[in-house]
Design a protein around this nucleic acid. Structure first.
Lengths: 208, 208
DNA sequence: GCAAAACTTGCACTGAGTGTAACAATTTTC
DNA sequence: GAAAATTGTTACACTCAGTGCAAGTTTTGC
């Protein structure tokens, strides 16, 4: 009655998914602040505490896929050959855009999602926090790849600028989509400017 | 029994200051999360609700001087003559550093302050949120000065990169101070790299 | 001095998040 | 295939941030 993942793990994954789905639906319908955890638990048919077991904070019900992007970057930096780390990162991002990777996918789904986020101060703040920790992680990876200490200010500067670039490029692509312009072109314009800026800022260092 | 500011306003300012001082002391002593609003109110000799009247969120007890920097930038952009906005901004920042303006002052005080912040997840998040809104404001001012719409992605990119630059430069200056290196030199190094990056990213636009 | 305006306070409430211990389901072991 | 050990779920009681409201005080303008 059980295979590799085990009956228990399948149930856990299912429960987690149901809670997340119910929560997302309610948030989109009525806004993040107007839905309580109690309500999500009731609607899911599960105890309040169980919701907290899976999602320690309310915001985690909305954002629970940071790890994906982190892993993508980690792998690209590991397999970069002799290339300087920032080059490798930029190559990866251009490839993801070129290949229409889901992470940069633009359609009605992310539009609705990000509108829900934008409508909630708490979620905007949390998105910024995530951007910050991603930038910190990226800085650590860049520094590590270059054999520098983890707090190296050049790595931090590069990482922060790269994250800004991607976030703003993505936001602009969403806007382009809404305004019936070409999202990929809008994305690429901001991205290439940002990358040029980072390369100029880091000129002469080991990073570029 | 009252002069220009009025008896009432002086009392208000005084109360506000006492609350803020008590809170800061307790936070530095025992950490942000280990001090409740109840305790601050009790120690200040004021009602819990009064604390919230002055400081709507707990975090506001720690950060309540964003407006200063915003005003500084606003004035510099208003009085920039024919200079492109980003140039004006960079000139202002170089001048503030050169003149040892309090906003960039480095000594034991800000060191202790930022260590307290760094020790509290909630405060780190809030600091990031403040950086984000400051970047948004700056983007708006830059766009406005250049006669562009407020959401112009180039303005947003420039503003975000400039804010990163200053935040990282300041952090590095604090670190330099702790390690007995020259803070101003450390600050200037990061700042000039960041500025060069922004100028390269925005090359050919009206902003630079 | 008096009335209006502004500030403080107490009180009752909502909702997020935590700790704990009892209970139920699953997995492991023999 | 049943007993034992592990792991997840639940109920319960609690802390603390933050809000809304109405009553009480203080300050101010006249």
């Amino acid at each position: 009655m059980s295979n590799q993942p085990g009956h228990r793990d399948r149930k856990k994954a299912a429960t987690r998914q149901v809670i997340s789905d119910v929560a997302t639906r309610l948030f989109v319908e009525r806004g993040f602040e107007n839905v309580s955890i109690d309500e999500i638990a009731r609607e899911t048919g599960v105890a309040r505490k169980t919701v907290f077991n899976y999602f320690p904070r309310k915001e985690d019900l909305v954002f629970d896929r940071e790890e994906e992007s982190r892993e993508l970057v980690r792998q690209a930096l590991a397999a970069r050959g002799g290339q300087p780390p920032i080059r490798a990162f930029q190559t990866l991002m251009r490839a993801l855009l070129e290949d229409r990777h889901p992470i940069f996918r633009i359609n009605q789904r992310p539009i609705r999602f990000w509108r829900t986020v934008a409508d909630s101060p708490a979620l905007v703040t949390h998105a910024r926090k995530l951007q910050g920790t991603l930038a910190d992680d990226l800085a650590g990876m860049l520094a590590d790849a270059a054999g520098k200490p983890p707090h190296d200010p050049h790595a931090r500067l590069a990482a922060a600028m790269l994250m800004d670039t991607l976030v703003i490029a993505y936001g602009e692509a969403l806007r382009a989509f809404r305004e019936k312009r070409k999202p990929a072109a809008a994305f690429a314009d901001v991205m290439e400017r940002g990358f040029a800026g980072v390369n100029a800022a880091l000129a002469g260092t080991v990073y570029v």
